[in-house]
Design a protein around this nucleic acid. Structure first.
Length: 511
RNA sequence: GGUCCUGUGGCCGAGUGGCUAGGCUGAGCUCUGCAAAAGCUCCUACAGCGGUUCGAAUCCGCUCGGGACCUCCA
C-alpha cells in the first residue's frame, strides 16, 4: 500500500506532476547508461547516483520497480551526424590492440566497481546494445514498414520531416522543427540523407569497421539512438513509467528516441521523463570531449592515475603522486553525501572547499547515529518533541521531486535533537528514540544510500574492546585526579589518530 | 547567431508572494580539571535598475554576469 504522494518533475510538461504508475505497484524505470569507450568520470557518477536515489525511494515506498540501465557498447561514431569518423570503441580497440569486447569488458568492470563503491544498487537489468542487435533490426524494419524510414545504400535513416507532419518532433526539447532546421550547421558527408535532421537507424559498415552484423540492408551496425528504444520496449513494454538520463541527452538522443518509438509503435513511450543536471568543474561542464575530467579513483585516493596504469578500475589502478586538483582524498560516502546536498536538477560545482564541508557534515550525521544507538529514554519532563512530524517532513522533502537537500536539512534537525538528548538537555521517550532510529534507517541508509564507512570487521571489534579498556583506565586516572596520566593517554591516542570525547554518560572516541 | 537555464549571506547550497532551510567557516557563551565533542547565541543574504502588489529574493520588463544545448557526451 503506497501512501505517500510523490511528485516528479516531468521534462515533457516542465512541471512537477504526481506520479501515477501505469500498472501499480509495478514501475518501469529506464535510464540511459554510459558508453564504455573509456572510464566513467565523476560527472557520470553523479547522474547514476541521482537515479539510484529515485530507485531507492520508489522501492522504499513499496513499488515493485524494474530498473533497466543500458550499456552502450557499439556503433558510436565520432561524428554521428555526418556519419563520419571511427567507432569510439573500435578506435580504442585498435589503439590498445584489443578486441572491442575486451574494451567494453574492462570499462564495464570499472564502472560497476565505482558504482558499488558509491553504494548504488545494481539495476534490475543491465542490457548491452550488442546483445540486442536483432531487436534493433526488427524495430528499424517496423519503422520502415510504417513509412517513416528509408534505405539508402545500406544505411537506414529516420525521416524526421515526414514524422514531424503528424507528430511533435520537438516535444521534449521544446524546440520547433523550423528552429532546429535553421540552426543545424552545414555538414559534409551526409549526401545520402534526405533531410538534414534525419538520423541513422542502421549504418553500413566500412571495410575497416570492426563491429558489424548482418542485416536486411547489408553488413553494418545500429545507430546510436535505436538501442534505447529497442531495449526499453523489450523489457518495459511499448509504454512505461519513467525514463531518465542526463540533461545533455534531451535535444538529440531523447528527441530521437521518442520519434523512433512513436514511429515504430504508434504511441508515446514514456509518461515521465526525468533529467539530471551536470557536474561542473570551475563552472564548466565536465565532459570527456572537453577533457576536464577526473576519475572517481583519483578523487577517492587523492592521487593521480599513472600513465602506465593498465586500468583505472579502483582495484587495479596504479596511482602516483598527489592529484593537482585535490587537497586530500575524499571517501566515496563523503562524495555521495556531497552530491546529495544539491538537488539533482541543479548543477553541482566541484571544489575542495565544498567537498570538505560536506565531509564534515557527513561525519557529524554518522556520529549522531552512533550516539542515537546508545541513547536511553529519559524521565518524561520538558516539552515533547514531535518526532512524528519530523518524519513526515522527511517524506515531504522526498515527495517533492526527490529533494535530498531539504531532506538533509531535516535530518540535521534530528541530529540536533539526538545530541541535545545525549547532553541531557532534552528528554526523549523510548518510542521517540525508536522512531528516530527508524528515520535514520529509512532515510539515511535505505533511501540516501549512505553507509558507515568504518567498522564491520574483526579488527574493529577487537579495537572496540581495546579502546574500552584504555578509556576505562583513563577514567580511573581522572577519578584519582591523576591528570598527568589521563592527559598522557589522551595525547597518545590523538597522536595515533583517535579523538576522545568526554560526555555526560562517559567517554566516547572516534578515529 | 538561435533556443533555454541561472546569479542567494565568508564558502557550498534549499526555498514559498508575507511566517526569512541546512551544512561548512568565524565570534561569544554553557558544560568540562584542561582540551575535544556537544548545546545555545550571533554575523540575517537574495546581481543591478525599474514595474505589478497592501507586501517580492520569489511574478513581469530591461541591464550586467555565469552556464547548457544547437557535433559525441551523464
Amino acid at each position: 500500500m503506497i501512501t505517500q504522494p510523490l511528485f516528479i518533475y516531468n521534462t515533457l510538461t516542465r512541471k512537477k506532476e504526481e506520479f501515477k504508475p501505469i500498472n501499480a505497484p509495478f514501475v518501469g524505470f529506464y535510464v540511459c547508461g554510459p558508453t564504455l569507450y573509456s572510464d566513467v568520470h565523476i560527472g557520470n557518477c553523479r547522474t547514476f547516483t541521482s537515479f539510484d536515489i529515485m530507485f531507492r525511494y520508489l522501492l522504499h515506498l513499496g513499488y515493485k520497480v524494474r530498473y533497466v540501465r543500458n550499456i552502450t557498447d557499439v556503433g558510436h561514431l565520432e561524428d554521428e551526424v555526418a556519419g563520419e569518423g571511427e567507432d569510439r570503441i573500435g578506435k580504442q580497440a585498435r589503439i590498445k590492440q584489443l578486441e572491442p569486447m575486451e574494451i567494453v569488458q574492462r570499462y564495464s568492470f570499472g564502472f560497476r566497481e565505482v558504482m558499488a563503491l558509491l553504494n548504488t544498487l545494481p539495476p534490475s537489468i543491465e542490457p548491452t546494445a550488442s546483445g540486442h542487435i536483432i531487436e534493433q533490426i526488427e524495430m528499424t524494419q517496423r519503422i520502415i514498414d510504417n513509412g517513416l524510414a528509408y534505405v539508402e545504400d545500406g544505411n537506414v535513416y529516420f525521416d524526421v520531416e515526414k514524422f514531424a507532419k503528424t507528430n511533435n518532433y520537438g516535444v521534449i526539447s521544446g524546440r520547433s522543427l523550423e528552429d532546429q532546421l535553421d540552426n543545424t550547421r552545414e555538414l559534409d558527408g551526409q549526401q545520402e540523407k534526405k533531410g538534414r535532421l534525419d538520423f541513422a537507424l542502421w549504418k553500413k559498415a566500412k571495410p575497416e569497421h570492426i563491429m558489424r552484423w548482418n542485416s536486411p540492408w547489408g553488413e553494418g551496425f545500429p545507430g546510436w539512438h535505436i538501442e534505447c528504444s529497442a531495449m526499453s520496449t523489450k523489457y518495459l513494454g511499448e509504454q512505461f513509467d519513467i525514463h531518465g538520463g542526463g540533461m545533455d541527452l534531451i535535444p538529440t538522443h531523447h528527441t530521437n528516441e521518442i520519434a523512433q518509438s512513436v514511429g515504430c509503435c504508434g504511441k508515446t513511450p514514456v509518461n515521465y521523463w526525468v533529467h539530471t543536471n551536470m557536474l561542473t568543474l570551475n563552472g564548466q561542464k565536465m565532459s570527456r570531449s572537453l577533457g576536464n575530467v577526473f576519475l572517481p579513483v583519483e578523487l577517492f585516493t587523492g592521487k593521480k592515475l599513472a600513465d602506465n596504469s593498465p586500468s583505472a578500475t579502483p582495484s587495479q589502478a596504479v596511482l602516483e603522486g598527489k592529484h593537482p586538483l585535490f587537497e586530500k582524498a575524499f571517501s566515496p560516502m563523503a562524495v555521495r553525501f556531497f552530491m546529495m546536498q544539491t538537488h539533482y536538477r541543479s548543477t553541482l560545482d566541484f571544489s575542495n572547499e565544498a567537498l570538505q564541508a560536506s565531509e564534515k557534515g557527513y561525519e557529524r550525521l554518522m556520529e549522531a547515529y552512533k550516539t542515537l544507538l546508545g541513547l536511553t529514554a529519559g524521565a518524561n519532563f520538558g516539552e515533547a518533541i514531535d518526532i512524528k512530524a519530523l518524519q513526515q517532513k522527511c517524506y515531504d522533502a522526498m515527495n517533492d521531486d526527490f529533494n535530498t537537500s531539504v531532506l538533509i536539512a531535516n535530518l540535521f534537525e534530528a541530529v540536533r535533537i539526538i545530541n541535545s538528548c545525549n547532553d541531557k538537555k532534552t528528554n526523549l521517550s523510548q518510542s521517540d528514540i525508536d522512531l528516530l532510529k527508524l528515520i535514520f534507517d529509512n532515510f539515511v541508509f535505505d533511501i540516501m544510500g549512505l553507509k558507515r564507512e568504518e567498522e564491520n570487521n574483526k579488527a574493529n571489534a577487537v579495537l572496540d574492546k581495546v579502546m574500552d579498556l584504555v578509556l576505562e583506565m583513563r577514567t580511573k586516572a581522572k577519578a584519582d585526579k591523576n591528570f598527568t596520566q589521563s592527559d598522557l593517554i589522551r595525547d597518545k591516542l590523538v597522536e595515533a589518530g583517535v579523538t576522545i570525547k568526554d560526555g555526560k554518560e562517559g567517554t566516547s572516541w572516534k578515529l
